[in-house]
């Protein structure tokens, strides 16, 4: 059996591919792209919610939000580690993002303007992410799969906290209800777009499916999310932003209105409110931290030399 045949045999047999196994270059590349994009999304995703930690309207909410944002950073760490097993250092991955070569989820280019947006992000954005991540627990690359299993455990807490924020607002004062509705209206469609283009138009989908990097198609995952969200909107007692949403008994799914893909590509291509802000923020923090990282290595090197000297 050639290495390639053996690789395909493992994929077929649902055996995980591990870092030291032979894998096609394109498989490795495809994974680096997807896993690093996922890691960057976790890290950039700290910004829109982080922007509300100092203004959270109760101490309980403040503590929960802080710990949630901290989890996102932790997820970024697991994913960078998973990506490093493919032979690319974190510094390189981060540099690629800062140069705009590697992407992060475009949803984070939308501004978090109100407290209800924090709820909507937890509920819808994390909710969409979970649908995707649950499916990725079965991805063919071992380290990625294990990172996903770990992440999924924490994400469901995130979605609950987001939904709980929305539930309190939706059953609160008229102003709070309006705030919740407005956040839902702004974040609903962009969350649907998180699943990526329709299957027919998705650049990387077919190959990723064949290699079992992806386990379900963009459209199937999106449908799951549409279905679960429709029920949750009812529980909240808010108005669904999709006027064309209708239960289709034959399919056993909700039919929905058309997604405005022009808007999606418009934001991806740099015209969102926060595209420049998110990258500039990340670069600024990185640059301002340069002297700290330098001091760390200088100190470490000095200690090492000293220990060596004492040993000699």
């Amino acid at each position: 059996m050639t290495p390639e045949q053996n690789f395909m045999r493992k994929i077929e047999a649902e055996e995980k591919i591990e870092p030291k196994d032979w894998m096609p270059d394109a498989y490795r590349k495809n994974l680096v792209r997807q896993v690093s994009q996922h890691a960057h999304s976790e890290v950039i995703g700290m910004q829109p919610e982080g922007n509300w930690i100092t203004r959270a309207p109760s101490l309980r909410r403040k503590a929960i939000l802080l710990s949630k944002v901290q989890d996102e950073g932790g997820h970024g760490l697991y994913l960078y580690s998973a990506c490093e097993t493919l032979g690319v250092a974190r510094e390189e991955l981060v540099a690629a993002m800062q140069q705009g070569i590697a992407k992060y989820a475009s949803i984070f280019n939308y501004p978090a303007q109100t407290w209800a947006d924090v709820g909507a992000i937890g509920w819808l954005v994390d909710g969409a992410a979970i649908v995707n991540q649950v499916s990725l627990q079965r991805t063919s690359y071992g380290p990625y799969s294990r990172a996903m299993i770990r992440i999924c455990k924490e994400e469901s807490f995130h979605q609950r906290q987001g939904f709980e924020i929305m539930l309190v607002l939706a059953s609160g004062s008229p102003e709070q209800q309006a705030m919740a509705q407005d956040a839902l209206n702004r974040f609903y469609w962009p969350s649907l777009m998180m699943f990526g283009p329709h299957d027919a138009e998705s650049a990387h989908s077919a190959r990723s499916m064949q290699w079992k990097i992806k386990r379900e198609t963009n459209d199937d995952l999106r449908q799951k999310f549409i279905d679960q969200t429709a029920e949750q909107v009812k529980v909240l007692g808010l108005t669904h932003p999709d006027r064309d949403l209708k239960w289709n008994a034959e399919r056993g799914h909700y039919d929905s209105g058309d997604i405005d893909w022009d808007e999606f590509y418009n934001v991806i291509n740099g015209n969102g409110h926060a595209n420049r802000q998110r990258l500039a923020h990340h670069i600024q923090a990185h640059e301002e931290g340069a002297w700290v990282r330098e001091a760390m290595s200088a100190y470490k090197a000095r200690r090492k030399a000293l220990t060596a000297q004492q040993a000699a």
Partner: peptide, 24 residues
């Protein structure tokens, strides 16, 4: 907590948030 997403590197970001969380 103001350091969130602004620390010199990711591990330190998490550590500062941890300490902030203890104080809150």
């Amino acid at each position: 907590s103001e350091w969130t997403s602004r620390a010199p590197f990711l591990e330190e970001d998490l550590a500062l948030q941890n300490v902030a969380l203890d104080y809150i």
